[in-house]
Nucleic acid binder design. Structure first.
Length: 422
RNA sequence: GGAGAGGUGGCCGAGCGGCUUAAGGCAACGGUUUGCUAAACCGUCGUACGGGAUAAACCCGUACCCCGGGUUCGAAUCCCGGCCUCUCCGCCA
């Protein structure tokens, strides 16, 4: 959410921010409603002030004065309800409009319409050249009995799967390695609830907007999260933290659920785009300071790169262009890992910087020890590892001519010391 | 799922229609005393929004005693709905 004061001061900035991000927000309408609402609220306040003053004097009045005062109050109350009705109409519209305004992208974010215009920052690692005909992860998964897509679909519909045997073990190995890697860096591990109320979904910026991507438990008014970013970032929602306790660094492992509505026919092959996966996610809550946000943005990016390097996977980092940024993100680095079967670098990580956009929505603040003021925190998050998507490059890049898969060194301790899957 | 009790400031806890501008205590902060620490004493001690003044401290108003409605001239207090917590019982991995 954007501070309405900033929008009043510079509406053009937010109009172009929305335009560049392909986010619709009616800022003219917002400002019009804002002006009306402010006027009505001020008038209402004046009316209530008078009402309170008269009401307070009533016990001290004699009968005839009291009668007169009550008559006056009746008129005032009519006026009061007239104005409070106006507030009741204007305020929800105001809030609704404000929720849609996008966070402007940083100046060094490339202007672009969609992910095809993201800018590569650097490439790391070298892409393996095969001296045999490589198999894709589905062939390998089938032959080594690691993946069973057919029965996943039979029982749960399209984009569902079973991982079996070494497939399941490799999946968990990746997650456990990522958890250990992050907790060693001092990130506090968390296991989190996955069914969230709307206020957490709104607070993180997913609602309004991503309802179609979300499995919703209508009967219980809960939503299945698409990422543990939601519970972790919203953990301190509506709280005031002590400034000297920041930054808070968390790492959570959870299942993630996505309807993938509107993606029909896209990435239908294999384990790339699926309804349910597991992810280790890192979240930082820090002070309201752009330099700190930048610093931690680099930190969470470096953490994820460290994991990929440890796994020996080639990847590239891209600066995500405006058109591919979410409403709340000021800047985002995606990490794309090389996937031989797709013959491309494909998104495996997404490091987002929000400034106070999320914190403002969820009323997450800290007390600044210097000024003693309560200020909104900054929040950031990034994938540490998401699997089974990352099993695609692991299985494909570590395959051998005989159809076996070499287990990456760092994962062996999590898979019973096994070096080769065959 | 059934029965009961309850949600008040950072925390504990009183208040149960106007005297609340929420008592009292704890914690915190500032000061006095002190060789230092502790203690004692004095003072300060919520948030948001609007208006005014300003270099700032500040002043005025409104709202907030879990949330949302209602009754009333007036609600922390009474009524209705919701959420949550605790105790007991039942069921259960």
């Amino acid at each position: 959410m954007i501070d309405i004061k900033l929008i009043r001061e510079n509406p053009e900035k937010y109009k172009s921010a929305c335009k560049n991000k392909n986010v619709f927000a009616d800022i003219d309408r917002l400002l019009k409603i804002d002006g009306e609402l402010r006027e009505v609220k001020q008038k209402l306040q004046e009316i209530v002030t008078e009402k309170n003053a008269i009401g307070k004097s009533i016990p001290k009045l004699d009968d005839s004065e009291k009668k007169e005062a009550l008559g006056k109050l009746a008129a005032i109350k009519d006026e009061e309800s007239e104005f409070s009705e106006k507030v009741k109409v204007l305020e929800p519209e105001f809030n609704h409009l404000l929720m849609h305004v996008a966070q402007p992208a940083d100046e060094d974010v490339p202007l672009g319409k969609d992910d095809t215009e993201n800018i590569e920052i650097r490439k790391e690692g070298s892409v393996r050249e095969f001296d045999f005909e490589p198999k894709d992860h589905m062939q390998l998964g089938l032959e080594l009995d690691m993946i069973d897509m057919e029965r996943g679909v039979k029982l749960a519909g399209a984009r569902n799967y079973f991982l079996k045997g070494d497939g399941a073990l490799l999946h968990w190995a990746v997650l456990r390695f990522a958890m250990d890697y992050m907790t060693e860096k001092g990130y506090v591990p968390m296991a989190v609830p996955l069914l969230m109320r709307d206020h957490a979904m709104r607070g993180t910026g997913y609602f309004p907007g991503a309802e179609e991507q979300t499995y919703q438990m209508e009967r219980d008014e809960l939503s299945l999260v698409g990422t543990s970013e939601v519970p972790v970032t919203a953990y301190y929602m509506n709280e005031i933290l002590a400034g000297d306790q920041l930054p808070k660094k968390f790492v959570a492992m959870s299942s993630c659920f996505r309807r993938e509505a509107g993606a029909a026919g896209k990435d239908t092959y294999g384990l790339y785009r699926i309804h349910q996966f597991d992810k280790v996610e890192q979240v930082i809550i820090c002070e309201n300071d752009n330099e700190q946000s930048d610093k931690f943005h680099q930190e969470i990016l470096a953490n994820s790169e460290g994991v990929l390097k440890a796994l020996g996977l080639p990847y590239r980092v891209v600066n995500v262009c405006t058109g591919d940024l979410g409403r709340g993100q000021a800047k985002k680095f995606d990490i794309e890992t090389w996937m031989p079967s797709r013959n491309a670098y494909c998104e495996t990580h997404s490091a987002s910087k929000f400034y106070d956009f999320q914190a403002r929505r969820m009323n997450l603040r800290y007390k600044d020890p210097r000024t003693k003021k309560n200020v909104f925190c900054h929040t950031l998050n990034n994938t540490v590892i998401a699997t089974p998507r990352v099993l695609i490059p692991i299985m494909e890049l570590y395959q051998n001519a005989d159809g076996s898969i070499t287990v990456p060194q760092v994962l062996r301790e999590y898979i019973g010391g096994k070096e080769i899957i065959k």
